[in-house]
């Protein structure tokens, strides 16, 4: 089983190395430069290929603790996927909707999603925190964050 894990990762890394090498061999070279832009990438690509082969055939050295880490309950996977999804939506809409609104929504719903039940505290934090950060960045430090739909 654990040996299989190393095999799968080894294969993925070998694929990565191959792709990287293919791109490296397409890099243009100039005659008058002794060590051109392609040399180090080629070396790295081959090195990774060799290492991935070594991993493919290596025995697993993980401790029990490490193996336990690998087991993630289904509901945790769902929770992580949820946070990932919310973040993805946040990134997509940040520049359209604006920093304050989007961040408030993000903090509130992400906490709610993860099981935070003190709605009042949650609302206060998720509204005040973005406003605080926004004020510091925009008014004090002159670093513009997307203002979006708010007429601030």
């Amino acid at each position: 089983m654990t040996r299989n894990v190393n095999r799968i990762i080894g294969l993925i890394l070998a694929l990565l190395a191959t792709g990287y090498l293919l791109l490296s061999y397409q890099l243009p070279t100039y005659d008058y430069i002794p060590v051109d832009a392609d040399v180090i990438p080629k070396a790295l690509g081959w090195l990774l290929l060799i290492l991935s082969v070594a991993l493919f055939f290596s025995k697993d050295q993980d401790s029990e603790e490490q193996k336990a880490k690998r087991h993630v309950a289904k509901k945790d996977v769902k929770a992580m996927a949820g946070v990932f999804g919310i973040t993805l939506i946040y990134i997509m809409l940040l520049e359209v909707v604006g920093f304050i609104v989007m961040t408030s929504i993000f903090v509130f719903f992400c906490s709610l999603f993860l099981g935070y039940r003190q709605h009042v505290v949650n609302a206060i934090v998720s509204i005040s925190f973005p406003i605080f950060i926004y004020s510091i960045f925009v008014f004090l430090l002159n670093i513009n964050l997307p203002q979006g739909i708010l007429p601030l």
Binding site: V83, T87, Y90, I91, M92, L94, E95, T103, F106, V107, C110, S111, L112, F113, L114, G115, Y116, Q118, V121, N122, V125, S126, F129, P130, I133, F137, I143, N144, L145
Partner: peptide, 27 residues
């Protein structure tokens, strides 16, 4: 509380990257 802390750490990282690159690609 953990759920809130998680949201705040995510925020912290997202703002951190955005404030130097101003690009959602980097996010």
């Amino acid at each position: 509380p953990r759920p809130l802390l998680i949201s705040l750490v995510m925020m912290f990282s997202l703002i951190g990257v955005y404030s130097i690159s101003f690009s959602t690609f980097d996010l």
